[in-house]
Design a protein around this nucleic acid. Structure first.
Lengths: 216, 216, 216, 216
DNA sequence: CCCTAATCGAGACGGTACGTCGTGTCTTTCG
DNA sequence: CGAAAGACACGACGTACCGTCTCGATTAGGG
């Protein structure tokens, strides 16, 4: 890459400028974090990215499209589902991570903003579901599905309903009450789940120390 | 004289025009339902209410302030907590009603829009909590608190955590997945709760017919 | 009059409040001098005078009406026509004073503002003429008329045309070029007039010292 | 291409739209003539010109800026100074034209409005002087300067003072008294001037005798 | 090895909505 | 019944972004 900062890409007959694309996504992300959703304007993104407005409109329709792209770029694989062969342990780790992601990470802030916008624009809500939420929902089911496949859980578990009982309270706290989500809370969700499906917890729940360790 | 339509309130020394206030709230509500959140502009509200913009700015700061007022005006007491002396029955009725309110009523649509905006504006989020969500959260706890007071439930129930497990999944479906919330789902949440706190369900859950009856 | 400043006149069933009238006129004048014409608003006058807007509208129609009243109140008799029995001397004194009045006095600033507004509003122009300019024009003629009556000047002098040649250049400089008007200039106007009507000037024009003396 | 009415200029990298510029100036002019100065609002200009408000604010600061531009566009060369080789004849023609221009032409109406506004806004007054009045003042001097150069007039004529005595009364009548200005009046101004500078005005006979004789 | 067409930067354009200010009208309450 | 207080409908202000458009420069691939 040229060391000359003024030496910029100025068009290319075949295909778009990757440089411009990344600059736009980063500028949008930065604006959201620094100025909030209202500070994310196409003009501010263009200025921040050193890009012409038309270049943005050529590739995106709305600012939320950009934010969604930026979010997917950064955070797509941010929520791996642990696989230790034990549903309880897997879910505990997963929910802790989910809570952290939603309430404390930059990517989570973007997602909350997108979910907020989805309440105002059902077309965007559909896009958000198609491009992220559905896939995320699949990830949410994964630990349980694996356990069913392993025979650890009965095959007639209503996975959809169980998943919503596991993640629903976390989203609720993240989006509605904005209250803290500690590991006690997420662990308790898992315990309740395990009891519902007939797996007793082994007495004491893992201490915070263990939980911390699993997070890393 | 009072019936004369041209006889309008045009200001007076002591206090605002109730007529203007109500017209604004109704116009805002109508716009949200008819044109969506983006259609709610101060100018459109003013035009729809037959009111000057300045009159709006005199009493409200933002359009979401207006929507919140409109929401509180209409829906404050829309979610009564049933009190049959039986936690299970009370909660089943309450959650069914909550699900209906959130996903199917006009007021619920306003609330979803406000929650969406709260994701973009933390100052507004605080206001929304102070003026509605906290109070609503108290309502959510009520059935359980009554049961504890009656001795139906042990005194050491972690009400906060239990409530979030009851209502969290409902908000989650309303705000995130936009999937349907049938009575099976809400009833299942109550059953899980009852089992958690050591009250066994009486075998069959009430049929939809009973549920309907309780709703009315 | 009560020493209590908060003790104000609050209505009276017999006629208007002279106190309010004077406060309005003074406030308008002050605003013009301090903030310029754009700073003269009915609201600012009301605030400055400690008077209700309606009280102003009860007695005046426009802010220029107020300024005109204020102007007439203060400056009506500010331009006495000297009468020494000598046209030349009278005119020289008068024009010097006129130039000073137009370009340097506060009242002159108000008059210039009113003349400016008259260019934008022919109805006001008519009012301004009726209430001040016509009378002023009469004053402008006075020295010459007296001289004619005294026989100092021939009876067939076209007074209107002569007056306009005397005062026109002064207004022109005050309103258009904004250039300084010294006594040389006004004296020269008088000299030209005297020569036109057949009166030779007495050689040397009076020095500035004499002029000053005549002004006071 | 040019005949297609929908073919509009919509911005371009290098410079502004001439079409928009002219539409604005014309709309402003039309508004002044039809509705008067108070009818000239930025919004009305924008509407009348079929132009966005921001396009106006991009290039002008105030409505009087626009009017000044419109005035200069139309009327810059509206006042040619005749050059017949005879001061008297030149001045008579010039002053007649000036009087007509100030009191009867549309451009004169604009100028009177601008001079009116200049009384309210000294910053604008300076601009008006810089962009028109100074140049106009030069034009006013031109006939006399030529005559001096020709030797028709003595070199020590105080041109500034003479010019103000010539045009001052005309501006005075146009701006202050709003009385008619016939050719008798303007001719009389010229006659007075000629007598002041020592040229007799009896008919067309040039009093070049003095000038020429003194020259040789 | 140049030609040429897609893409880039820049930025003016027609618009919509913003939040503010001043106008002139009206109502209430006080003295 | 006049005055203070101040809410009201109205209309213009000047600003911020929107999404569209033109323009000249840039750049790779196909002729």
């Amino acid at each position: 890459m040229g060391a000359d900062a003024t030496r910029r890409h100025h068009g290319n007959r075949h295909g778009r400028s990757e440089q411009a694309r990344l600059a736009v996504l980063e500028a949008a992300d930065d604006l959201l974090v620094e100025k909030g959703f209202a500070g994310v304007t196409i003009e501010a993104i263009a200025a921040g990215a050193g890009v012409a407005k038309q270049t943005i409109y050529r590739w995106w329709s709305t600012k939320t499209d950009i934010l969604l792209d930026a979010f997917l770029q950064d955070a797509a694989e941010d929520l791996p589902v642990p696989d230790h062969g034990d549903v309880g342990r897997d879910l505990r780790g997963y929910l802790r991570h989910l809570a952290y992601f939603l309430t404390r990470s930059d990517a989570g802030a973007v997602l909350r903003a997108l979910l907020g916008h989805a309440q105002h624009d059902s077309a965007f809500a559909a896009v958000l579901r198609a491009r992220f939420l559905d896939e995320q929902h699949d990830r949410d089911r994964l630990a349980i599905e694996r356990a069913v496949r392993r025979g650890q859980l009965p095959a007639d578990v209503d996975i959809a309903a169980e998943v919503d009982q596991l993640v629903g309270p976390i989203y609720y706290r993240a989006l509605v009450t904005a209250s803290a989500i500690d590991e006690d809370f997420t662990d308790r969700l898992v315990d309740a789940f395990l009891r519902r499906v007939g797996l007793t917890t082994n007495g004491d729940r893992p201490s915070g120390v263990n939980g911390r360790a699993e997070l890393s």
